[in-house]
Structures are given as C-alpha cells and as structure tokens.
Design a binder for these strands. Structure first.
Lengths: 344, 344
DNA sequence: ATCGGCGTCTGAAACATTTCAACCCGCCCC
DNA sequence: GGGGCGGGTTGAAATGTTTCAGACGCCGAT
C-alpha cells in the first residue's frame, strides 16, 4: 500500500504552512524556531511519516555520518570483537559503522575500499592484507583518514593501533620455558601475514636469549589460521619421532590452538602434561574450550575503540598528527599449560 | 597534501573537453559513446583521480545500492555465518551489505532501522528481537522490502526464512531417547525469544509422543544464550539429586552447550557416558570442541542467501508475493552423544 | 518619528549526479 | 538534391537537503 515516493521537506513545509528553511531548522537547530511553529512542523512530519533523506543531506554537507571497518577474516571472532569496540566509539559520536570483510584477499579489499570512497565515509579503519599496498596509500593521499588496526603502518604514513606482536610471542614462549618445557613447537602461517611473522619472531628471540637449543624449537608452518589447519598441524606434530617431539606448542592464533587442542585430545594426549598449548588473541572460545586455553590476550575491544578515536581525531582535528599506538599483550594462563590453573 | 574537494563530473568534462552528459554516459552506458571520446574521458578521470559521488547518484536515482542486515547477537558466530551468506548474494547483485547488531535490545534495533531508512537502503534483512514489533510493520508499510531471518513473521506480513525450530527440538530429543536416555534436561531461555520457545516446544512434543514420563524432562531456564549461562546451567544440573538427575541435555543453542560441556568436563564427568549433550546451530566451534558437539544444524549461509534472494525479489519484482521459506534442520551426531562417533 | 536590534521566518543557491529531449552531422536511398 | 535515419553529443531539468543573506514585524531607546 502507501505507494509513491516518500515525502520530502517540501511536502512537510507545505503541509505545515511554512517554508523549506524552517523545516530544516526544526531538524537541525530547533532552538531558533518558535515553539508554536516547531510544534506544527513536528506534527506535519509525524502525519506524513517524513524520513530525512540522508543522501541529500550528505550531498549538501559534503560529508557522511559513517565510519567503516574492513576486517581481515570474518571467520575469526577476534575481528568481530574489534569491530564491537569500534562500534561503541562510533555510537558515542553518533556515527554509523559500515563493516566489510576482505577475507584475506587483496582484491576484495580493494573493491570494498573503492565503494567506501564512493560513499565518502568519514574515515576508514582497516586490518589490511598488506599495509604497504598501493591502494591504501592512494586513499590516504586523498585526505581520507585511514587507521591501520592490528598492524603498524609502514613508515608512519598512517595512524595505527596494534599490540606488540613480537612481545606477545616472547611472553608465550617464555611462559612455556618457565613451565619446564625444553622442546617447543611454533605453529602458524603463512608468513606473508605480518602478525604471524612477528609473533614467531618474538618466539625465536626469547628462545635464543634463554639459551635454549635452536634445534629444539620446531616450526610447523600452516597455510591458513583456521581450526582445520590447527588439527593438521597436530597430526604433523604427532608424526615426529618421540625423542624430538615438542612437549609444548605456541600457536599464532587461537583458532589454530583450538584445532591443535582438539586433535591432541582426540589422540589421547593429556593436556597439559603431555602437550601444553598457548594460543594468541584470547577469543571468547579460548576460555570455553574443554581444556581452557592459555592465550596471549589482546585488548580486543580497546583496540577498536582506540582506533576509532584516532580516525575521528584525524577527521576533525586540523592539527592531527599520525601516531602509532601500541598495546601491551598479556598472558592469560589457563589449564592448557598449567596443570591446576584456576580456569576463568 | 592533495587538499580541496575531490573532482566532480564537471571537472572531468572540462578536462576532457566534453559535456557532463557524456562523462555520465561513459560511466553508465559506455556503449553509446564513441571509443575515441570514451578513451579521452577515461584518461581524464584517471588523471584527476575522479571518484563517483554515491550520494549524488543515489539522490538522483532515488535508490541505493545497499542491503542491510540487522543481527540479533553479534557475539554468536551463527549470525555472522548468516551474514556471510547474505553478503555473497549481495555481491552477486553488485550490492553492498550494511551490517548492524541490535544485541538483543529493541531500542538499538529501532535506532538502526531508523538510520537505514534515512539511507534509503534497498531492503532490510533482520533477525528481530520481536517479529511483531510496531517499527517493523511501519517500515514494511512504507514499501521497503523487509525479510525476517531465522524467525517467521507474524501473519505473513513479511517474507521470512527460517528453520523449523519445533522440528529441530524434536530431532534433538528423539536422538537422545534413541541413545537410551530416559531422563533429559532441556536448557535455554529466556522464553521471550521465539527460537527458544519453539525448540523447547518441539522437545516436549516428541517426549510426550514417545511415551516418556513428563517428570523426567527437566527444564533449566537461562537468562541468556551464552557460554557463561551454559556453565551455570551445568552447575544447577549437578546439584540435582542423583536419581532424578538427567543423563542427557538438549541446549537451545551451541553457546549454551559449549558452556555446559566445559562445566561437565571440569566436574570430571565423562561425555557422553555420564552426560550426553546436544546443541543447536552447529556453529564452527561445535565441531571443534574437545568433545565434538552433536548439534542440530541450520544451513546458516543458505539461510542468508535465501533471505537475500527474497528481499531482492521484493525490491525488483512488481508481482512479488510474500513467502515463508522453511528449511529442514538436520542432526549432526558427534562424540558428545555417541560414544565412538566419527568426529568430523 | 527614527533607528537599531532581536527573534523569526523566507527564498534561492548550491551540492554532484542522471536522464531526456533536442540537436548536429554525415550518409544512404530514393 | 531532398528526406530520413541513426550515432554521437549537448544542455538543462530534476533529485532533497542545508545554508545564508536578507526580509519582516515589533519593541525599546533615542
């Protein structure tokens, strides 16, 4: 029913017997219009079911009321938690948040960014496939605020918010060594992912510094950061000769760790006695695993919140300077590494 | 750098020495413009770094190129999988997808819907807090296509795509009875959530039909559908006197089931021998739990895809008729109910 | 009386695009 | 050589909002 285009300011103005400008004022600066007319206009709006046309507003204003987040992997709850943090901040500034998912593919990422530019979003938050990509630099050059999330931008060309991944890798492996492990596996990949590279790097660093034998740190590469790949890594681990087999594993994210955990339990291993496992991210399901997972916590929502703050600053503050925020990761020890850890 | 507003069609036209209309044609109907001019215009666009202003396009065209999905609970991966399905369909039609999250609160839902109307989205997909809510009906009355996802709309006022929740509850409990259980717990809540109501309803139906004693079906209500509530239900379960204590539980979603599972294992119960567990949704983490979880699978992405199809039909096909699509849920038996189930 | 100022309201311009009727020009056909 | 045709291009109108310079009426002060 109720067919026909939706009513415009003009219709409201006619119905209330005032001019266009007045209707606009009622919406945007109610204090300048007399209570009587305001009331009349508001009634007219309600009667006609008027809904402001955001495209027109935006066209005239030149700026939209939305932020966008392009996440790296929709299947990893970590990114949804980051998004939730951004959303809260956006909400506080009365902005909408547009969420996209590049799924790790640079092509999709570019398509999304293109669309976002067409929409003239106020700012773009992104966990990029490659922080050095041309299309990112191009956007920034246009003057659109871009903030890199969970990676640090190259050469300070962008604001960024991240956790110190090298440090994260360090504390994870340090913890395992403290628990008495002398043979450790590090699991993750592909190394084209910056986060992976740095976490593994941290692991190697601290391994060397603690004076452990280089050969006793086994790297098991994966092709993705998924539960399935974690299981597969578990199988490879089990295939190693007993005397060389690691007694603990550090996985570059929780999805891998969860897969490994499941495979290990299925194979009858006792956790953590026969295999200790540390993950990364501390997603909600890490604590909820049947053997609660020790993990390197990133302040997920905080990350998002801070990133939103930076993008807003860049959008509104003329004196804005790019900054690289780094959060400190924190080890959350649970039963997957400590025999009788209190679990939550 | 590169300050100043971004170039418009007019600038491109000037730079290429043609009229506005021609530039527009290059973008929208390239076949009507001669290869030579087209080439010239395209070069000008590239040089100036022209990006079409979507607001202006939309204002003139009266219609946007975006769909929206308002999900019920951002913390439940199930909805993200539905969203992924929608996104694929949107992609096929060259539409963008705007994702919002009401977090179960009717107020947020309304705010989001309001914004979406202002943006003149092509259609709205929503898993509503309450499918009977006024604001939903209002939107539909305006002629904006609305499709209810994972619930069926009341009185056929909307298109909807859902799984037969009653049937889902039936097959879950039927499965438990087949495994020889005679005392079963059903866990979920609050009952204000329609999905919960129907799943429990199905459970009760089949329990009666199979001639089981009504008193042997224990209902443990929860205040939310979260992992934490699942654990708490587990504690209440453990508190029941042994002779009345159920030997199996049907949880209204996987998050609850995961929490219950974890609590039970922590308490030293053997799964499924001492407690069998069935969840609902079959989210990815269900299979990845340390004791892989038996669950009632909903075709998550399919749900989203189908919903997108309906909303598009309603948006473009004048002869559109509302329809209620119902998918059939499917039991996926894993180790949490069947002692030596193959796990994946 | 005149003036200034204030509170309220108006009307038109501007935003960037799409669409459409009209136009131009060269060509072919009669 | 005139008429018609059709491909290519133009120019202007239209979309719904915001903004801004001004108009209007009224009051108090000069």
């Amino acid at each position: 029913m109720a067919i026909g285009r939706s009513p415009s300011v003009k219709d409201v103005a006619a119905s209330a017997g005032v001019s266009l400008g007045t209707v606009s004022n009622v919406m945007n600066r109610p204090e300048v219009v007399s209570p009587a007319t305001r009331e009349r206009v508001e009634r007219a709006m309600a009667e006609l079911g008027f809904v402001r046309n955001e495209s027109a507003r935006q066209l005239r204003a030149g700026t939209s009321r939305t932020l966008a987040y392009v996440m790296l992997e929709g299947s990893n709850p970590f990114f949804h938690d980051v998004a939730a943090g951004i959303e809260m901040a956006a909400e506080d500034s009365d902005l909408s948040l547009f969420i996209c998912n590049s799924n790790g593919r640079s092509g999709r990422e570019e398509v999304h960014l293109d669309r976002l530019m067409q929409q003239r979003v106020q700012g773009i938050l992104i966990t990029p496939v490659d922080p050095g990509a041309r299309h990112l630099a191009d956007i920034a050059k246009r003057g659109i605020p871009v903030v890199i999330v969970d990676r640090v931008g190259e050469g300070g060309a962008f604001c960024s918010v991240a956790v110190d991944d090298v440090l994260g890798g360090r504390i994870a492996v340090e913890h395992l060594v403290e628990q008495g492990h002398t043979r450790v596996a590090v699991i993750g990949g592909p190394e084209s992912i910056g986060q992976v590279r740095e976490r593994l790097e941290g692991a190697r660093q601290v391994w060397a510094e603690l004076g452990m034998k280089p050969d006793d740190l086994t790297y098991l590469p994966t092709s993705e950061m998924t539960v399935a790949e974690g299981r597969s890594a578990g199988e490879r681990l089990a295939g190693l000769p007993a005397r060389r087999r690691p007694t603990a594993a550090f996985c570059a994210n929780d999805l891998l760790a969860l897969g490994l955990l499941q495979q290990a339990i299925g194979a009858g291993l006792r956790i953590p006695e026969e295999l200790a496992i540390v993950g990364f991210d501390d997603i909600e399901f890490a604590a909820a695993a049947a053997v609660p997972l020790t993990s390197v916590r990133q302040p997920r929502q905080e990350l998002g919140r801070a990133a939103a703050g930076l993008v807003l600053d860049e959008a509104t503050n003329p004196a804005h300077e790019h900054q690289q925020l780094t959060f400190v990761p924190e080890l959350v020890a649970r039963a997957s590494t400590v025999a009788r850890a209190r679990s939550y």
